[in-house]
Each structure stands twice: as structure tokens, then as C-alpha cells.
Design a protein around this nucleic acid. Structure first.
Lengths: 188, 188
DNA sequence: GTCTATAATAGGATAGAC
DNA sequence: GTCTATCCTATTATAGAC
């Protein structure tokens, strides 16, 4: 499993993730993935014998790990609610590159990818909503309000990414992130 | 242009729209489109000589027409702001079948479709945001607030469709529609 | 581990009969 | 207007040398 080659596995995953985000699952061809990772198709199959599906799964695993380390962990960890939410939106801004990157949850929820991955996509959404709601409960909001707002936050993030792509304008996303902590913490 | 055949053009467009919504542009194959419309591939090419791209364009035209008749027109027409917004969410509920149908704006904003249609997608989003903002201005909200809320409404609709798909649960969308008019008209 | 070459299949598009 | 049959390219995937 040790990888000492020219393109480290992390970088391969990073580049594949970019291809999937831009083209979706059905729109991402092995030729794309090979060219953009800098590896020949056969080399990709060496690392991911399951083909495109296992490449997408590996990318999702990588994203899940990042989310656990940079979002779910910090949200569940110590700190003031507001500070944790501020840290969260900063992490989101980085992850989605200010709204320029699509989210794989949206992109993989149609076509062939939906068949393979809908379970994981739903779980990711649920985990995030639960983690955000928990922070809002810590902040003193009633559970029901916390859950409604957490759902609304995830909805808005996904929606802002879609609208931003359609308009080719990252401002809806950055505007959203700026007011999200205040909106979430407003008195009930 | 008169069409007297077994499957009328409107029905063909309806079925193609369904295929594109479920599979995206890159994920919708000519074989799918042929099977699901009930026409042979060659018959589809007879009606849409431009191939898949012009089929998607025709579907987008059809949707634009529906939106103009059922959303943009009514929003710009006579009536109380609240009644127009209530009518709007009813139309959305019908159009997205209670959240079960994806929106082509989101689905076509990646891959090959993004290249062909990003202009139209952005225009659709802008038109809707403008129409909603105008109703809010009629309702007495300051222009800046109206625009912010209209953007937020479109963002939430798109986001609720994505989250609903990922969770395979239409409730986020129906919940959103229920509170949308109140949220939009709340005092500034 | 990586490559070139190639097999096997699916995809978009067309020809030509009816 | 619709069909069957076909073409050509792209696509997924593998073989086998290095």
C-alpha cells in the first residue's frame, strides 16, 4: 500500500475529485481521469481495480475523512458555539473554494452515481445536520428549532453552490457563509 | 410541424425531460431517450436533427414556456403579493412533484450540459430572482432586502431539491415551501 | 507501478426501406 | 414519421512488456 511514485495517492485523489466535481460521475470518463491525474488508464486500474466506481468511492472516502477531521470533529469538540460555527464556515469556504467547487453530494445524486452512492450521500447529509443541530442546542436553542435550522443551513449551502454555478458567480455562496452563523444563532 | 402521430410532441418532451432530470445530460443516453419516449432513435433524430443537444434545448424551451406561463407571468401580474407567492409555491410543488423531480438548472450545471447551456441556466435563475424580488417590493420591502430574500428563496429551493434527493425524502422540500411565503414577507 | 496496445462494448448519429 | 440495420467513435477495461 506504500506509494513512493511520482504522483502520491493523495494528489491522485485530489485530481480525480476535481474531475468528478466538474463533470459528474457519468460525465467523467476514464480518459479524463487518466489525463488529469497524469497516469495512464492501466495505472489507474492498478490502484483502483474496481474501475470508475471504486475511484469515485475512494474520492468519497477521502472527502468523508476530511469532513470528519475539519468539520464534524471540530463541531462536536470543545469551544463556544459561535466560534465553532465560524470555524465551520471557514472550512466550507476552503473546501468549496469560495463556491467555485461543486459538492459531490449534489453531483452524485443523479444518474449512475445515485444508484451506487445514495446511501453514503444521505448519511453525509444527516451527519452534518446532526452535528450542526447539536451546536445550536449547546447554544441554548430548543431541539426542534435547532434541527429545523440545521436542515435549513445544509439546504442553503447546497442551493448556493447550485445557484452560484448557474450564474457563474461565487458571491451568492460567500454572502451566504457570511450571514450563516448569525442566522443560525438568532434568538428563537 | 403538425404532428398527428401516436406520441404527441408535448408527451415526447415530457418523457425526455424526465430522463434528463433523473440521469443528467451526460448520463442520458440516446438509447434511454428512445426507449422512454417510445420512439426509435432514428425517429428522435427526425424530430430533433441536432441530436441530444437539441433535445435538451427543446426540453429547456418547454420548461421556460411553462415557467413563463405559470410562474413569471402570474408573479408579474395582478393580485396581492401574498396570494401571488402562495400561487407560486403551489406551482413549484406541482412542477417538482413535491420535491421528487430534480431541477434541470442544477442537473445541467455540470459537464457537457454546462458548456452548452450555462447562459440559459443563469438567465432562468436571474429571471426568477427578479420576479420574486419585484413581488416583495410591491409588498413594501426595501429593494435591497427584496433582492436578498429573492436570492435566498431560489437558493433554498435548489438546495432543498438536492438535500431531498440525497436523503430520498421529499419532506425538506415540502417543509420549505410551506414556510417560504411567510419568510419572504416577514417585516424587514 | 507504469506504460502501449488492444479487446469488447456502449454511445451518438445516419441510411434507406416502408 | 417510424422503423431496422449499420457506421463510427468513445468508453470501459484488460493484456503483457518494461
Amino acid at each position: 500500500m506504500a506509494r513512493t511514485a511520482s504522483v502520491p495517492r493523495d494528489e491522485v485523489l485530489r485530481r480525480m475529485k476535481k474531475v468528478f466535481r466538474e463533470n459528474g460521475y457519468d460525465g467523467a470518463s476514464m480518459a479524463d481521469l487518466a489525463t488529469r491525474t497524469g497516469l495512464a488508464k492501466a495505472a489507474l486500474y492498478h490502484h483502483f481495480p474496481g474501475g470508475k466506481e471504486s475511484m469515485a468511492a475512494a474520492v468519497l472516502d477521502d472527502v468523508s475523512g476530511w469532513m470528519k477531521d475539519n468539520v464534524l470533529g471540530p463541531l462536536a469538540g470543545p469551544g463556544l458555539p459561535r466560534e465553532k460555527l465560524e470555524h465551520w464556515v471557514e472550512a466550507l469556504n476552503e473546501f468549496y473554494d469560495g463556491g467555485q467547487n461543486a459538492c459531490l453530494i449534489g453531483v452524485f445524486s443523479i444518474g449512475e452515481a445515485m444508484i451506487h452512492f445514495h446511501g453514503r450521500l444521505g448519511a453525509s447529509v444527516k451527519n452534518l445536520m446532526t452535528a450542526v443541530a447539536q451546536v445550536l442546542i449547546e447554544a441554548g436553542l430548543p431541539e426542534r428549532v435547532a434541527q429545523t435550522r440545521a436542515e435549513d443551513a445544509v439546504i442553503r449551502i447546497q442551493g448556493a453552490l447550485v445557484v452560484g454555478r448557474a450564474l457563474q458567480d461565487s458571491r451568492p455562496f460567500t454572502r451566504l457563509l457570511r450571514r450563516l452563523p448569525d442566522d443560525l444563532l438568532a434568538s428563537a
